[in-house]
Design a protein around this nucleic acid. Structure first.
Lengths: 211, 211
DNA sequence: CGCAAAATCACATTTTTAGGGGATGGCCTC
DNA sequence: GAGGCCATCCCCTAAAAATGTGATTTTGCG
């Protein structure tokens, strides 16, 4: 028995979904709401198997914000976003906010149950378009950006230690070398990267994808 | 007419795929190789519409590394990874390396053409399992982690400036305040975050998701 | 082997940060 | 209007980092 919690501001759609779920013996609708103002409390209390969340909702708290709030205390319960838009940037925001998958409203009728089963069995229903957007946005994070600075292994190690907040002393201790050596390495790093402080080096390194 | 470039170390599979493509009038196999050692040159020369890339390949350059190398100069051409594993961590690595989608070998026969059409029309074929892994890994990046440190607006601004590599002077100039004020703010930031250097503050702030 | 790059250490100087005071005006709340 | 928070500014000292110059030892590679 799969319990569902529904957030959808459009009354007609809300009732339609409610009926779809009720007509099926495998699902039970724990509750449906026109806004997500109390989503946090409702989720805590009703503890649904899956949450259906409209992205476009009035009243301050839209579906994305609601998702974020729910994810703040619950990383498990799958959240399926409902939206009319396919290529909307909001969809990506929703993914970042913690959405598990999403469903276009025009496909609601034929895919609702599939989507629910999908998230419950470890899947992530997405349209091809959005899958592509997600993939593309991941590439940005991973862009390894060839060693634009030609740092040596040691230098990269030290730069990474810096990025983690270590000072000269700690680095020296960590690698069993003298402070002066750390100094020298960092001097060389600065030269190669054309920067003049730890912060700049870390920032630039991060930009370039090293780290 | 869709031109395909294939990398697959298993001879039998390589030939099977080749035949599948050749039998269809809509596809042409530009070349198939048992290793990806020269992938870069081959892609440059043959300029395929889509690349099929086995993840598990011997000889130093596996499919992931090859994908990375191709993406270094070509962000457009879709690359579909072929793999026997579904939940392998390699699949995520492949996505990070720049894969557009991927296909399980056991589904090759029935889904190859679908997958190719998928990437060519802007989609990203993935199994539900991997879609989920991708989504989950994105959540890590986005975990906004509410203001755990209760920094004021100004303090957050300054912390962000620090993260971008600015020093005291530059921050003072940027916000038209005196260096001493910058000092004070940073002192307060350190206290709130329980750190003792710019680097630590930035590192900790990044971990916590501020920035 | 022998070279060149990388890694190591040293010393000196200047600049920047860190940490400790204390002080003022603005704004909001009780 | 008193008290609290925020942002602003100032001074002082000690610690850490940046910069320069030079030298020695490892180490990878032809």
């Amino acid at each position: 028995m799969t319990s569902v919690l529904l957030y959808e501001d459009n009354r007609q759609l809300r009732e339609s979904i409610g009926q779809m779920l009720t007509y099926s013996d495998d699902y039970v609708l724990l509750g449906s709401f026109a806004n997500a103002l109390d989503a946090e409390a409702q989720v805590r209390e009703l503890n649904p198997s899956v949450i259906l969340m409209d992205i476009e909702m009035p009243g301050g708290v839209n579906g994305i914000e609601a998702t974020r709030r729910i994810r703040a205390f619950d990383q498990e319960t799958p959240i399926i976003m409902l939206t009319v838009f396919d290529d909307n940037e909001n969809v990506l925001d929703a993914v970042f906010a913690g959405a598990t998958g999403y469903l276009l409203k025009k496909h609601l009728a034929e895919r609702l149950f599939d989507a629910i089963e999908d998230v419950l069995t470890g899947g992530a229903p997405m349209s091809p378009n959005v899958a592509r957007m997600v993939i593309t946005s991941m590439h940005k994070y991973a862009r390894t950006q060839e060693d634009l600075f030609e740092l040596t292994t040691r230098e990269k190690e030290i730069l990474m230690a810096l990025a983690q907040g270590a000072g000269y002393k700690q680095i020296a201790a960590k690698y069993f070398i003298s402070i002066d050596t750390v100094r020298t390495h960092i001097k060389n790093i600065y030269q190669k990267m054309q920067v003049h402080s730890q912060l700049e080096a870390v920032a630039k390194g991060r930009e370039a994808g090293i780290l």
